[in-house]
């Protein structure tokens, strides 16, 4: 690895980090606008034209608020909780292929921070680590509501991780690789050999299970039981104020962005779009259009997350567990068996 490589990597990481933060910031704005749209309201419209500066105003408010650390709580762990939540949310973006290779002069720039050959498993590791931020924060608050929220988060995450892992196994059986870059490359274009190339058309059931689990893993409605305000005040972040609360809320939006990016890469062809090599454009232009296509897919999925949140009511806790263990896991296993049989007979 030369010095140029290291500098390029650092720049790439910084750019992705900034894009992630900006998207998370404007997701909060988008969420309020979508909610307003679905409920026939106007939404935030005071700060700037169409309320476009609302996230900045919210951020300033978060920083200005009084910081409260409850007495008799574990002070160090109380601060570690939100830090861990936002850190685990951010590191997931490292293995996502944002685009093909860009040629700048003679330098080939891969639009991906690192292509490890266990990329899919890395995503799972990061997802499973994400629950620690919630658990440590909830426990360190020394509050019964927070503790209940933390415990709910832990059991929910563990239950849905299993179904998520099983649903992805069926996809991996058809792709035959764990590298996200190769999975994206296999879904080249849109149509080949008489069938769609995107995995969502090859594994629709796996996608359905995966997206339900993604809702549960990111603690989004209808699975937002860890912060269920009607029962638990604010769940794990009851005791948090100021920017520490902001970190928890921010981590949720970053998680939503990253899981949308993962879903777009695994199931919707990543940076591929129809007719990408029949337009007669140069490779660099195709790459840039591919990045734009990926972001459009991600934004559609984020919109879907918000749409569901403002449409469906929250699950009851036993319904949540029933759905996870008695419906999704058997379905995922059946999907693996069917995939195996089909692969064996069609070959």
């Amino acid at each position: 690895m030369t010095t140029t490589d290291i500098i390029v990597r650092l720049v790439l990481i910084t750019v992705i980090f900034l894009i992630t933060l900006v998207i998370a910031m404007y997701s909060t704005y988008a969420e309020r606008k979508v909610a307003a749209f679905l409920q026939d309201r106007v939404g935030p419209n005071r700060a700037g034209p169409y309320g476009i500066l609302q996230p900045l105003a919210d951020g300033a408010k978060m920083f200005m608020k009084e910081e409260i650390i409850p007495a008799r709580s574990s002070k160090f762990l109380f601060i570690v909780g939100p830090s861990l939540a936002i850190m685990t949310a951010c590191i997931g973006s490292a293995v996502i292929p944002w685009g093909q290779t860009l040629m700048i002069g003679n330098y080939a720039l891969d639009l991906q921070v690192t292509d490890i050959n266990v990329g899919v498993l890395y995503i799972f590791g990061v997802v499973s680590l994400g629950v620690y931020g919630v658990m440590i924060g909830g426990w360190a608050s020394n509050n019964k509501y927070s503790l209940l929220g933390a415990i709910r988060a832990a059991s929910q995450n563990i239950s849905y991780e299993i179904a998520m892992g099983l649903s992805i196994i069926a996809v991996l059986m058809t792709t035959g690789t764990l590298s996200l870059r190769e999975i994206a490359a296999q879904q080249h274009g849109f149509w080949s050999h008489g069938w769609f190339t995107w995995n969502v058309f090859k594994q629709p059931l796996a996608f359905l299970i995966f997206i339900v689990c993604a809702f549960a893993e990111t603690n989004r409605a209808p699975f937002d039981l860890p912060e269920c305000e009607t029962e638990l005040v604010g769940g794990y972040h009851t005791e948090y104020s100021s920017m520490k609360l902001g970190f928890y809320l921010f981590a949720e939006y970053i998680n939503m962005f990253i899981s949308s990016a993962v879903m777009a890469t695994l199931f919707f062809g990543g940076y591929n779009f129809p007719y990408m090599h029949h337009l007669g454009l140069s490779a660099n232009w195709v790459t840039i259009l591919g990045v734009i296509a990926l972001f459009i897919k991600i934004f559609c999925l984020i919109f879907f997350f918000m749409w569901v949140r403002w449409t469906l009511p929250r699950f009851r806790y036993d319904q949540l567990m029933d759905l996870g263990w008695k419906a999704l896991i058997p379905l995922a296993i059946a999907n693996i068996v069917i995939t195996g049989l089909v692969m064996n007979f069609i070959k």
């Binding site: 266990v118 498993l121 799972f124 590791g125 499973s128 680590l129 629950v131 620690y132 415990i151 563990i158």
Partner: peptide, 18 residues
């Protein structure tokens, strides 16, 4: 490495903590 990460850190120790 990654399996150790997922299984031990991500699942078993979460259950311990729980």
């Amino acid at each position: 490495a990654i399996v150790n990460f997922i299984v031990y850190m991500g699942a078993i120790l979460v259950l311990f903590l729980y």
